[in-house]
């Protein structure tokens, strides 16, 4: 008995030991690029060549990169302007995505629609075509329709998020007893008003999730914004700006690398925090789709 328990203990130590080693290596791997860009943003290194080990463990903190990022004219535009553009695009996309997703989810859940499943299958296939995959045909079509602008972008961003979210919304609305909106309809609302005031409110988590997905999708898109807006620097979004700052658009005219790092931090950290805050919600949504019961 003693031999067995010793063997068991050794095995346990070995098992936990390996676990911690793997976890620590993966934790370093996960954090390193983020730590690196964070440190770079507070350095005064103008390019990759001049970045050294000492910059990862700095003795001095410089704010010059942030100052230049927020105040100087970059390539004919400016970072605050690009962020503002991105916020407008992302905000509008979020609002429209929420409406479209919830209305569709409501219809799929509650209403008597002929060939509902065929329709659902049909729109589901669309989610297999992210706008990066349809960028070329979209560009060609929108060029003809004079939609190579914000309106076109919002239009293109919305469906992917909306359809995905509509399916989540459908499941969520399924779980809301119909009597909630029926009572509202008897008490004096039309069906659409009941949808807006009662169902949207009861499905608030899905509304928030959809808004977040829509916002993220538009805020972080590069492929479509780049192809639609490239010629007009004043209309650039923050991702095009960052792409330029990283020296990938026109290496010769790119400003100092620490400015790119500062831009990455300013754009990345708020979204990262938003993501983590909503992570529980996200996990639940993804797991539900993967057939995991919570």
């Amino acid at each position: 008995m003693k031999g067995l328990s010793l063997k068991y203990k050794l095995f346990k130590i070995l098992r936990l030991g390996i676990s911690y080693i793997v976890l620590i290596i993966m934790a370093i791997f996960s954090v390193f690029p983020l730590y690196y860009v964070f440190m770079t943003s507070f350095s005064n290194a103008p390019n990759l060549i001049s970045l050294g080990v000492s910059d990862l463990f700095p003795k001095h903190i410089y704010f010059i990169a942030y100052k230049e990022l927020l105040t100087t004219n970059l390539y004919g535009g400016s970072f605050p302007l690009w962020v503002r553009n991105s916020l407008i695009l992302a905000g509008s996309t979020a609002v429209i995505s929420v409406l479209l997703a919830l209305i569709t989810g409501y219809a799929l859940s509650r209403l008597d629609i002929p060939a509902k499943k065929t329709l659902a299958t049909f729109i589901y296939i669309v989610t297999f075509f992210p706008y990066t995959a349809t960028a070329v045909p979209l560009y060609l079509l929108f060029a003809k329709m004079h939609l190579l602008n914000y309106m076109g972008l919002i239009l293109a961003y919305t469906p992917g998020t909306s359809i995905f979210a509509a399916f989540i919304a459908k499941l969520s609305i399924d779980s809301i007893p119909p009597s909630y909106e029926e009572i509202a309809m008897i008490d004096g609302l039309s069906r659409f008003q009941a949808f807006l005031r009662i169902i949207m409110r009861l499905a608030l988590p899905v509304v928030a999730l959809t808004a977040l997905l829509g916002f993220d999708g538009a805020y972080l898109d590069f492929a479509l914004a780049y192809s639609f807006l490239l010629p007009n620097v004043k209309q650039w979004t923050a991702t095009i700006g960052l792409y330029y700052l990283a020296g990938l658009l026109n290496p010769a005219s790119a400003p100092a690398y620490n400015i790119f790092a500062a831009g990455s931090v300013l754009m990345g950290i708020p979204l990262m925090i938003l993501f983590i805050v909503s992570q529980r919600m996200m996990t639940r949504a993804y797991s539900n789709l993967a057939g995991v019961k919570q």
Binding site: L34, S264, G268, F275
Partner: peptide, 11 residues
Amino acid sequence: LILPWAFPGFI
């Protein structure tokens, strides 16, 4: 470990 997922992918 979820930080890489949380940080915006394009950046």
